[in-house]
């Protein structure tokens, strides 16, 4: 990065930023934060994998996981990323109404995903799986729960921005604020893809490991 000390650059929104890299400070901050969050989720996912097939009692993944239902909620979350892309693009172009519409679409899709999660958690508790039941319950609820907390935060943040867009305080010239929320949102989505793969695709057929009794229900 030899030619790094350029001053007086304009970013894509036309605001003058005096930074050595030409990236805005906020954007760099968000990227660095996401790097940090990778380690956070990475450690929890690793924990899930380490404890895979090590529960001493049921229910085991095969007793409770429902791939079709979670595939639907996964699809909803993925579509919310598409809505996010559209929202940012319209806001950047100054097409305020469409932008606002798509921001609230992200909010709604995110909320639907969360409702699926609430349903799933409830359902599992009915089937006899809680965070205290066994290692699978502990690792499953804490990992997906923390992901859900990230989604919740994103929904609140986007709601805040959506109202800003309604009132006109979020516009083309400060669309960077929406872009940051977008980076966060896409990241949370990608994390879900990994979680979905690890929990639902890789572990969904896991039954009682050798030495542990099969689950017979309550």
């Amino acid at each position: 990065m030899a030619a790094s000390a350029t001053y007086e650059v304009k970013n894509e929104y036309g605001e003058v930023i005096n930074t050595s890299t030409g990236l805005s400070n906020k954007k760099l901050l968000m990227w660095a934060f996401l790097g940090s969050d990778v380690m956070f989720f990475g450690s929890f996912i690793a924990t899930f994998l380490v404890y895979r097939n090590r529960s001493l009692v049921g229910p085991y993944p095969a007793d409770v996981l429902d791939i079709p239902i979670t595939s639907v909620s996964t699809f909803v979350l993925l579509m919310s990323s598409l809505a996010m892309v559209l929202a940012l693009s319209y806001i950047q172009q100054g097409r305020q109404k469409l932008g606002t519409f798509w921001i609230f679409s992200v909010v709604v899709l995110g909320a639907i995903f969360l409702l699926f999660q609430v349903y799933e958690f409830n359902h599992f508790v009915h089937l006899g799986l809680t965070p205290r039941t066994n290692l699978f319950g502990t690792t499953f609820f804490i990992l997906t729960g923390l992901h859900g907390a990230h989604v919740t935060l994103g929904v609140l943040w986007l709601m805040f921005l959506g109202f800003g867009s309604l009132k006109g305080t979020l516009r083309a010239d400060n669309a960077i604020d929406l872009e940051l929320a977008g980076l966060y949102w896409h990241f949370v989505d990608i994390v879900w893809i990994v979680i979905f793969t690890v929990i639902y695709l890789i572990s969904a057929r896991d039954v009682a490991p050798p030495g542990s009794p099969p689950f017979v229900g309550h």
Binding site: G35, S36, D37, M39, F40, S43, F44, T47, Y51, R54, S55, L56, P131, R132, N134, L135, G137, T138, T139, F141, I142, L146
Partner: peptide, 29 residues
Amino acid sequence: LALPVLTVALIQLQVDRLYGTNFYNSAAG
């Protein structure tokens, strides 16, 4: 990059201690 890893360990121990989960509960494996 490193502090989040500690955070994870601490959260695991914290939920174990406060809410009875099993991350480090030897009785549950």
